[in-house]
Design a protein around this nucleic acid. Structure first.
Length: 595
RNA sequence: GGUUCCGUAGCUCAGUUGGAUAGAGCAACAGCCUUCUAAGCUGUGGGUCGAGCGUUCGAGUCGCUCCGGAAUCACCA
C-alpha cells in the first residue's frame, strides 16, 4: 500500500509541478493515532520542488491522489503533513489479495538471486556450548531463514575450531589424569566430559605457576614457563607435524565433543548445510600466506614469523604464521574464506561472531584484499554484543557460565510446570504434552534473545526469560494457537469458510489495524534481510499478535451473524495465523497448534 | 592512549531513510471469564531520550566536544 502511494505521489509531483521527486523525498508513513487518516505524506521535502508553501502543496497533491487512486478516498492537511484516508472497502480487497497468495511475504529465489554464505556457531572443541553460543546460534539460524525468505540462496556453514593450543590442553589433561575414563564410562555428555579436562588443565597449570612464583619466578612469565604449558605447546607442534599418536588421541576426543554438540544443536533446533574444520582449512591458509609472502605482500621477520603490515590502514602489524611455522587463528580464517569462495562463489559471506572480534574481521578483510582477493568486499562481520547476567559477566573461573543444555532443559521444565498450573493440555498424550512444552520453553528463550537489537550487549535475566506473559515468545505462540483453534472449530462445524468469496465487507477500525500490519509483512522481510535484524521480525510479530488479540477480544468471529462478515473475519484470522507462523519460523521458533 | 560499539520510565527493551504530543512489556494498583483458549483484554501512575553545543522548517535519530559503560589493540582462539 505504501508503495502504491509513493508512486502515486511521484506521479502527482511530475504532473502538477513538472519535477522528478527523488525516492528519499517521498516520505510516506503511517498516520499517528491522534490524527484522521491512514498514511501520511511528509510534504516539506516536496515543497522545494513545488515552489509553494507546504500546506498548499499538500492540498494539491491530496486532491490529485483522491482523483487518480481509487483506494484513496479523502485527505486532510495539518501543517506540512498530508494525511490520506484509505477507503475501508479497499482493505477488504487487499486482504483477499494477500490471502489468495499462497506464500505471501516470502520471495522465491530466481535467476537474479544472490548467494549468501552464513557462518555461525563456530565452537571450540574444548568445552560445551554456553549462553553466548546460544545467542550466536539463534541469530545465525534466524538470519539464514530471513535471507532465504528475502529470495537469496543461502548456505549455512559452521567452522569447527578443532585445532590449536586450547585443544591440546584438554588432550594433555586427559592423557595425564583421566586414567582412561571416557564419556561412556562416566555417563557424561562428550562435550561436557572434554570440557572438564580443559578446566582441570587450567587448574593444574595455575598450581604449577604458583609454585614457580613461590620459587622466585616473575608472575608474568610463570604461566608460560610452567611445564604443563610447555608440554601443551610441544603437543601442538607434534599434532601439526602429523604425529600418529597425537592425531589419534585428538580424533577420539573430538568425536566425543561432536556427539555432544549434535545433541545441543538438535535441542536448539539449528542446522548447517556444510561444516568446515579448521584442521583442514589451516593448511590452505598456510599455503596462501606463503604464496602471498613470495608475491611480496607480507613480511618475514628474522625469527621466521610472517606478518602483514596494515599500518597504512591505521591498523597494526598482524601475525599470520608463528616463528615455529604453526598457524594462528587468522591463518585458518584466511584459508577458510578462500575455500568457501571456491566452493560457492558467494556474493555475500556473513560471519556471525561476537563483537570482541571486530578487530579480527577488519584485519581478515583487509588482508584478503591485500592478497588480491577482490571478493573480500562481500565479507560482512555480523557483530553482536555479549550476553551478561544480572550479576555481571559470565566467568568460567567463578562458575557463573550458563550452560546451553542446562538452560534449554530448564526452560522446558518451566513451561511444563506453567502448563500444569494453568490446567492446559488436558487430554493430550504424554508425548504431545512434552513436545508442546518443549516448543513453548524454547520459544520463550529464543524470542527473549532475538527481540533485542543484536548490536547491543544484553542482560540475560533468568527470571524474566521464563516469563510467558507480555512481550514474549509464548504470547505470540498463544495467539497462533487460539487462531488455530478457531479455524479448527470453523472447519468442524462448517459455520464459516475463509475461502468462500464474500461480497464487499467494510472492515471496522480494529480489523483495518490488523490488515495494515499484514500488509507490512512483505516489505518487512526485505527490510530485515537488508538490516540483518531478526529483532525487526520479533517486534513485528509481537505487534501483530497484540493487535489481533484486541480484535479477538472485541469481536466474535464464528458468532458473527452476518455470513459475509463471518467469512471475512475467518479469512483475517487465517492470514494472521499464517503470518505469525511465518514470522516465528523466521526466528526459528515453532508454532504449536494448541497450548 | 588508538579504534569500534552502547547510554531512552524503577527493571528489560522498541522507536523505520531526521517528522506531528517519545512507545511496549515486567513490576505496582484497579477492573473484565454464561460467549471462538484469561499464557488474553481494559485502565491508572511512571521520562531533563547521559550532558552541552551545532546543522534545519523540524533532532531520541545527523555532526562535534565532554561524561559513563563495554570490547579490542597477543607467537590465545
Amino acid at each position: 500500500m505504501e508503495k502504491l502511494l509513493r508512486s502515486g505521489v511521484k506521479e502527482a509531483v511530475k504532473t502538477i509541478y513538472g519535477a522528478d521527486a527523488d525516492d528519499d523525498m517521498l516520505q510516506v508513513q503511517k498516520t499517528r493515532k491522534e490524527f484522521e487518516g491512514d498514511y501520511t505524506l511528509v510534504v516539506f521535502p516536496l515543497s522545494k520542488l513545488s515552489r509553494r508553501g507546504p500546506e498548499q502543496t499538500a492540498g494539491e497533491i491530496g486532491e490529485y491522489l483522491v482523483r487518480t487512486i481509487d483506494a484513496v478516498s479523502g485527505y486532510n492537511v495539518i501543517k506540512g503533513f498530508l494525511n490520506l484516508v484509505i477507503a475501508p472497502a479497499e482493505w477488504d480487497r487487499r486482504l483477499s489479495v494477500m490471502h489468495a497468495e499462497s506464500d505471501y511475504g516470502f520471495t522465491k529465489p530466481g535467476p537474479e538471486s544472490e548467494t549468501v554464505v552464513i557462518e555461525y556457531s563456530s565452537p571450540n572443541t574444548n568445552k560445551p556450548l554456553h549462553l553466548g553460543h546460544i545467542r550466536n546460534n539463534l541469530l545465525g539460524y534466524s538470519l539464514s531463514r530471513i535471507f532465504a525468505a528475502a529470495g537469496n540462496i543461502v548456505i549455512r556453514t559452521n567452522i569447527v575450531n578443532d585445532r590449536g593450543i586450547h585443544i591440546c590442553k584438554s588432550m594433555l589433561a586427559w592423557q595425564k589424569y583421566s586414567g582412561g575414563r571416557t564419556p561412556e564410562s562416566e555417563g557424561i555428555k562428550g562435550d561436557h566430559f572434554v570440557g572438564d579436562y580443559y578446566v582441570l588443565f587450567e587448574k593444574k597449570l595455575k598450581e604449577q605457576a604458583e609454585e614457580l612464583i613461590a620459587a622466585g619466578s616473575e608472575p608474568e612469565t610463570a604461566r608460560d614457563n610452567a611445564p604443563l604449558m610447555q608440554e601443551a605447546r610441544q603437543m601442538l607442534v607434534k599434532w601439526e607435524a602429523g604425529d600418529p599418536g597425537t592425531v589419534k588421541l585428538w580424533q577420539m576426543m573430538n568425536s566425543w565433543v561432536y556427539e555432544g554438540f549434535d545433541v545441543t544443536y538438535r535441542a536448539l533446533g539449528v542446522e548447517f548445510d556444510r561444516i568446515y574444520y579448521e584442521s583442514d582449512t589451516y593448511k590452505v591458509g598456510r599455503e596462501i600466506v606463503l604464496r602471498s609472502l613470495e608475491e611480496g605482500h607480507l613480511i618475514r621477520k628474522e625469527d621466521g614469523s610472517v606478518w602483514i603490515d596494515l599500518t597504512d590502514d591505521k591498523l597494526d602489524q598482524k601475525l599470520l604464521l608463528r616463528s615455529d611455522g604453526t598457524a594462528v587463528y587468522m591463518t585458518q580464517d584466511l584459508g577458510t574464506a578462500v575455500i568457501r569462495y571456491n566452493d560457492y562463489h558467494f556474493d555475500h559471506h556473513i560471519y556471525v561472531v561476537g563483537n570482541e572480534q571486530n578487530y579480527h574481521f577488519q584485519v581478515l578483510t583487509l588482508a584478503l584484499k591485500r592478497m588480491g582477493y577482490e571478493w573480500a568486499e562481500g565479507l560482512h562481520h555480523f557483530s553482536y554484543g555479549m550476553v551478561e547476567l544480572p550479576e555481571g559477566k559470565m566467568k568460567s573461573r567463578e562458575g557463573t557460565v550458563v550452560d546451553a543444555d542446562d538452560l534449554v532443559e530448564e526452560m522446558t521444565a518451566t513451561a511444563t510446570a506453567m502448563s500444569q498450573e494453568l490446567g492446559k493440555l488436558t487430554g493430550y498424550s504424554e508425548d504431545e504434552k512434552q513436545n508442546i512444552c518443549r516448543q513453548i520453553g524454547l520459544g520463550a528463550l529464543k524470542y527473549y534473545i532475538l527481540k533485542v537489537d543484536p548490536k547491543k550487549n544484553m542482560t540475560f535475566n533468568p527470571r524474566e526469560s521464563i516469563d510467558f506473559n507480555g512481550n514474549t515468545g509464548p504470547f505470540i505462540q498463544y495467539t497462533y494457537a487460539r487462531i488455530r483453534s478457531v479455524l479448527k472449530k470453523a472447519e468442524e462445524t462448517g459455520i464459516a469458510d475463509a475461502s468462500e468469496v464474500t461480497g464487499i465487507v467494510i472492515p471496522n477500525p480494529k480489523e483495518i489495524s490488523v490488515i495494515k500490519l499484514l500488509d507490512d509483512f512483505h516489505p518487512l522481510v526485505i527490510e530485515a534481510a537488508r538490516e540483518m535484524s531478526p529483532a525487526l521480525i520479533a517486534n513485528y510479530c509481537y505487534e501483530l499478535a497484540r493487535e489481533f488479540n484486541q480484535f479477538y477480544h472485541d469481536f466474535s468471529i464464528l458468532g458473527e451473524e452476518n455470513k459475509d462478515i463471518r467469512n471475512f473475519r475467518l479469512r483475517l484470522s487465517e492470514l494472521t495465523g499464517r503470518i505469525l507462523e511465518k514470522g516465528l519460523w523466521l526466528l526459528g521458533i515453532e508454532a504449536p497448534e494448541r497450548m
